[in-house]
Simulated assay, not measured.
Amino acid sequence: MSMSWFGYLGRTVLTFMFWSSGLAKLFDSDAGLAEMRHFGLVPEVLFYFATVITLLAGSLLVILDRWAWFGAGALAVFTTLTIPIAHNFWAMEEPLKTMEFHVVMEHITVVGGLIVAIYASAIRKVRSHSSKLPR
């Protein structure tokens, strides 16, 4: 019995925070642009489009396991960059400081999950390739 559906499910859940955010920004561009302005990202239109493309394309590459290393890598870099831009807990006062610190810890954990996805994709490809070699 093939378990490939389980891989698709896992990769879809892993990327949920990215593709759901990308779709929300795509369907409500005013809110997406306001978010870019809120964080001081200028020009906001450029950052808006780059964000939507990164979130949606990166998620799709991971979910489909096609160039998953590139999609997961882009999402990992994106997630890491949000820390100093949107979650700079070190410059905040309590209780927001502690809440944002926990968000940063979750972001780091998600980056770890994306690294595992890259590793798992590479292992699947090596095993798939080696099973096609003549014995």
Score class of each variant (00 low, 15 high):
Asp65Cys: 12
Lys132Gly: 11
Glu44Thr: 01
Val126Met: 10
Leu81Pro: 05
Ala86Lys: 13
Leu60Met: 11
Arg124Asp: 12
Lys97Asn: 12
Gly40Val: 06
Ile53Tyr: 00
Thr82Leu: 10
Leu60Lys: 02
His129Met: 12
Val116Pro: 05
Ser131Gln: 15
His102Trp: 14
Leu41Ala: 04
Thr82Trp: 09
Glu44Val: 00
Ile115Lys: 03
Leu61Gln: 01
Ala120Met: 11
Ala86Val: 15
Ile115Asp: 08
Val103Cys: 05
Gly112Tyr: 10
Val110Tyr: 07
Val104Ser: 04
Phe101Tyr: 11
Val62Leu: 03
Gly40Lys: 01
Ala50Arg: 03
Lys125Cys: 13
Ala86Arg: 09
Ile118Glu: 07
Met92Tyr: 07
Ile118Pro: 02
Thr51Gly: 04
Leu81Arg: 07
Thr82Ala: 12
Ile123Ala: 13
Met92Cys: 09
Phe49Thr: 05
Ser128Tyr: 13
Pro84Cys: 12
Asp65Arg: 06
Met99His: 15
Glu94Thr: 08
Pro95Val: 08
Thr79Asp: 05
Phe47Ile: 02
Leu75Asp: 00
Asn88Lys: 15
Ile115Cys: 10
Glu100Lys: 09
Phe47Gln: 03
Ala50Met: 02
Leu75Gln: 00
Thr98His: 15
Ala76Thr: 06
Val111Phe: 07
Phe49Glu: 00
His107Gln: 10
Lys132Val: 13
Leu60Gly: 03
Glu44Gln: 04
Ala86Pro: 10
Leu81Tyr: 10
Val103Asn: 06
Trp90Ala: 14
Leu61Gly: 00
Lys132Met: 14
Lys97Met: 14
Ala76Tyr: 00
Phe89Glu: 09
Thr80Arg: 09
His107Leu: 11
Glu44His: 03
Lys97Tyr: 12
Phe89Arg: 04
Pro95Ile: 07
Leu41Asn: 02
Val111Asp: 07
Gly71Ala: 08
Phe89Pro: 02
Phe70Trp: 08
Ala50Pro: 03
Tyr48Thr: 04
His129Gln: 14
Tyr119Asp: 12
Leu64Ile: 10
Ser121Gln: 03
Leu55Val: 01
Ser128Asp: 09
His102Phe: 14
Ile63Pro: 01
Thr80His: 09
Ile115Arg: 04
Thr80Tyr: 11
Asn88Cys: 15
Ala117Lys: 03
Pro43Ala: 06
Pro95Thr: 07
Leu60Cys: 08
Leu96Pro: 11
Tyr48Cys: 01
Asp65Phe: 07
Val52Gln: 02
Thr109His: 10
Ala122Pro: 08
Glu106Ile: 12
Ala91Arg: 09
Ala117His: 05
Val45Cys: 02
His102Cys: 09
His87Gln: 14
Leu46Cys: 04
Val126Thr: 13
Lys97Val: 13
Ser131Trp: 13
Glu44Ala: 04
Trp67Val: 05
Phe89Val: 13
Asp65Ile: 06
Ala74His: 01
Ala117Glu: 03
Ile118Gln: 01
